[in-house]
Design a protein around this nucleic acid. Structure first.
Lengths: 130, 130
DNA sequence: CTTGACCTTCCAGTTAATGGAATCCTTATC
DNA sequence: GATAAGGATTCCATTAACTGGAAGGTCAAG
């Protein structure tokens, strides 16, 4: 699979994918003509990367996760520990999003929706994240 | 409240807060001595900003939300629409995190946890995000 | 009245991309 | 076979969002 193809499928710009190769997050093969050739596993990694980055995971977090893909000689206990740590992070993020969601949906309910100013969203939004 | 105080409470570095003032996300007052003076509303905004940024919302997203705080003359219908759009984004993010969580927790279960290599995490992780 | 913690501005550097130029490869059409 | 379009390559510059550090002002405690 060429870069345009994998970019389309993973939902990432080709530029970003080249950058990820630069910093060692993916290591596509090369065809005779010099084109990058991406395997399915590369596509999976890139999709995962795109998702993780858009959810606020750092490149270093991603690097750790990518290492799980790559280092098949890593001890299972280690893999498990890393996976667990990331589960905790995910749960925390979900909780935070849930809090944001609760606040906003509560406010949408209270907001009149007409063209009057002075929507209660403003004051409540201010209180909500103290 | 001075910058160190608000930084501590909002969980953001003072540097970042100064940067957010630079780009107009917060507008703290100034004391006689030139120190920034943050109101409670500034603290709320900054906490919200920190959270939103760590969850992958862009600065522009944040700017829109901050505008809700600020522009009290904005029509309620408009406020409501913006809040709704962000609710949708939040829900999408939660779903994506849930997917990541399911994958990882499933794999933790399957991973032996001893020191043997060849943990099934690796292959499953590869399949999971196709 | 000085020491230390905290504040200021300014300028430089980093991270994570992104944009653009110049060039090469592949495929379809004349 | 020439040519033009579409996608690939590298390399260099720029942007966005911070981050670090220097040089100096402010303030409460001893």
């Amino acid at each position: 699979m060429n870069i345009g193809d994998v970019a389309h499928r993973a939902g990432l710009p080709a530029k970003t994918i080249r950058y990820y190769e630069d910093i060692g997050l993916v290591k596509p093969l090369r065809s005779q003509n010099g084109y990058r050739r991406f395997r399915d596993s590369d596509l999976h990694k890139l999709s995962f990367l795109g998702r993780a980055r858009s959810l606020g995971f750092s490149i270093e977090d991603c690097r750790t996760l990518m290492a799980l893909y790559e280092d098949h000689s890593r001890a299972s206990a280690d893999v498990k520990r890393i996976a667990r740590q990331n589960l905790a992070k995910i749960e925390e993020k979900i909780a935070e999003l849930q809090a944001m969601h609760d606040t906003l949906s509560h406010l949408v309910k209270k907001c009149h929706g007409d063209d009057r100013p002075d929507c209660p969203i403003l004051t409540d939004l201010a209180k909500a994240h103290g």
